[in-house]
């Protein structure tokens, strides 16, 4: 990581990230499976006049509802969908599992469908793991976890509205969206804005050159 990358980091709540990492590392093979209730979320939203300037944490406005087993599963899936690289942290380290939990626990109607879809999909992954002889998805060997995802990725592209491809597509979209909306994710994407500047001079010469365009007057 380069120094400027580090300078963007403190906005993330590292305590949350570390909690997830330790939870993932300490995963024992569990026999029992528990799921967040599929009942609608009863919590309230933030209302029509929230403090827009405040930085919010998942779980602050409404309770998170993943079971421990589901959290571990999401952490494992985040590690597959967006693992860390030499240059950038992975989805888990920037708090994406918490974001997914916040999303499916949201009291708003837009998230209700995702809640059903994701919880159903997570259960399906455990069933698939049992078909492959493991207790649950988290207990599957890394290679098998990857294989399950690679197989799901194909219907997710070909028939994106059909389950379980629809589940995998939505999960991938939420993980990617959760990741690239963090300062670390933005940096990895190549976003360089959101900093005040005295002047705006347009794209640099190397960009214009690549596009074959002449400099602006």
């Amino acid at each position: 990581m380069n120094p400027s990358h580090e300078s963007l980091a403190p906005r993330i709540d590292r305590r949350v990230a570390l909690r997830w990492i330790s939870a993932a590392a300490a995963t024992p093979a569990l026999g029992g499976i528990s799921f967040a209730a599929e009942t609608p979320v009863a919590a309230h939203g933030y209302g029509p006049d929230p403090d827009m300037t405040k930085a919010y944490q998942p779980g602050e406005l409404w309770p998170l509802t993943f079971s421990e087993a589901q959290r571990k599963q999401i952490v494992a899936l985040c590690d597959i969908l967006l693992p860390a690289t030499d240059a950038a942290p992975g989805a888990v380290a920037v708090g994406v599992p918490d974001f997914i939990d916040e999303w499916i626990s949201s009291p708003y109607p837009g998230q209700v469908g995702d809640r059903k879809l994701l919880l159903k999909g997570l259960a399906w992954l455990d069933e698939e793991a049992r078909r492959r002889g493991a207790g649950d998805f988290v207990s599957l060997k890394a290679g098998d976890q990857l294989d399950v995802c690679q197989r799901l990725a194909i219907p997710a592209k070909r028939t994106p509205k059909e389950y379980p491809g629809s589940f995998f597509l939505r999960l991938r979209d939420l993980v990617a969206g959760g990741y690239y909306t963090t300062p670390d994710g933005m940096r990895d994407l190549g976003y360089r804005g959101n900093v005040p500047s005295i002047e705006w001079t347009g794209p640099p010469a190397e960009v214009l050159e690549k596009l074959g365009l002449s400099p602006q007057a």
Binding site: A153, I154, F168, R172, G177, G185, L189
Partner: peptide, 27 residues
Amino acid sequence: RRLPDLNAATKFDWLSEREGIAFGADL
């Protein structure tokens, strides 16, 4: 190159020849 929102990187699968949606390094 706008401030990324939730869909900043999720609508690109149709552009690739890959059989499935992208994840991991492909993503």
